[in-house]
Design a protein around this nucleic acid. Structure first.
Lengths: 231, 231
DNA sequence: ACCTGAACACCGTTCAAGT
DNA sequence: ACCTGAACACCGTTCAAGT
């Protein structure tokens, strides 16, 4: 499992004088596509080599390991994040609205790459794009009046929440539309006497959409941040 | 990656008439110990067979796959959770205090099993013990006056937060004491002009302990829940 | 200098063959 | 009936040998 500190300002590989750099990016891009298509689980250096019409030994001349490759694959997620723009004629947003919009956009990016989510574990994204997103978001909050110490803590809490939510909802292995039925069966088979509240809550939770559930939890955090800001 | 719905009320294996059941539990216990010792990454059916002085083929007569085995290994985490007891002569807790105590206890359990954390991805713990913990916690909140719909959403948000926090802090691959230095180096190498807020926040964040950081984020959520409860 | 076939040391899982 | 050695179909990674 790769750690965040493993990422380095200058990407690796014996980058000669420009050409190898290009190969490195071609490899990362192809690897990202492959993970999207077949999942992090099924991703194989042999498959990647095949798709690039080369050999695995050649891949290892540009990246030092599969782990390192995955660090850069994850960073491409953050390249897709587009900071929620303040719309033209609209009134200036509060930090609260800006934070919510950022979280929703981050969630949207993650939901589009379910197969990549397992790679986010124990890997705070600190690749070039990951850092840029954090800096942009901190700036959005601070410029709207939220003090930096609180903004930094809010960013951490929100990032944890969004990633955790996405992992359990979108990641391969999470219940899809068909598996939801199996889950229903599972709950119905539970002894209602033993888990009355769990069952009652499950019945209630199915009445709200997943998006709403995401927003409700998010607002818990944002309201708490607001309280910290006032006190 | 195993899904939660995959867990079943009745554990698997051709459980004959009592004896095989015992074997099943011996296997799960040994597997859990092995994961704790060498990590989920290094865990191997061959290693487990060796430790139990049997063969892999025999293991497969009691569990249907490595994935299923891991589902039950994870559930053992929840068997360790001891619901924070209301102390003897003390005044009755609020739901707020109860929720915080539960989250802290859950975090404590997770922090003691860093090697098991990667197994929690895309696996909402729905094994027997996992369900019991949820039911107990919901009961603790509801009995202290928090309405069930809010309690259920709070439980989900808190669980996501605690697991996300633990994954990024305790999971193998997270920066230990030595790697923290490497991380410092990494940040120092960043262009301060490009990431001024990230750098300023990092300097500030190092002044609070990890436990405090955990509690601060947690209180964001709990304060938000309180606000939802009042409105 | 750059590339690669083939190997090395592993996996999870299965099955024919033993007791 | 219960167990298992040995195999099957893979991995990530390396290296001698080619161009």
């Amino acid at each position: 499992m790769p750690g965040w500190w493993a990422a380095r300002p200058a990407p690796p590989g014996r980058q000669g004088r420009g050409r190898p750099r290009r190969s490195f990016e071609r490899i990362i891009a192809a690897a990202a596509d492959l993970v999207d298509e077949i999942g992090a689980e099924g991703f194989t250096m042999r498959l990647l080599a095949e798709r690039l019409e080369t050999s695995t030994a050649t891949l290892y001349r540009h990246v030092s390991s599969k782990q390192e490759l995955m660090v850069y694959v994850v960073d491409r997620l953050f390249a897709e994040y587009s900071p929620p723009g303040r719309a033209e004629g609209e009134p200036p947003q509060s930090w609260h609205e800006a934070a919510e919009a950022a979280a929703v956009e981050f969630n949207r990016v993650l939901s589009r790459h379910p197969n990549m989510l397992p790679l986010l574990i124990s890997q705070v994204p600190v690749g070039p794009h990951g850092l840029q997103v954090r800096e942009q978001t901190l700036d959005a909050l601070v410029s709207r009046g939220l003090p930096l110490p609180i903004a930094a803590r809010a960013y951490t809490a929100i990032a944890h929440y969004v990633i955790g939510f996405a992992l359990q909802l979108y990641a391969p292995g999470a219940p899809g539309s068909e598996e939801a039925a199996a889950l229903g069966d599972y709950y119905r088979r539970l002894d209602p006497g033993a888990f009355p509240l769990t069952l009652a809550a499950a019945a209630d939770l199915t009445t709200v959409s997943i998006d709403d559930e995401f927003l409700e939890g998010l607002r818990f955090i944002l309201d708490g941040v607001g309280q910290a800001n006032r006190s």
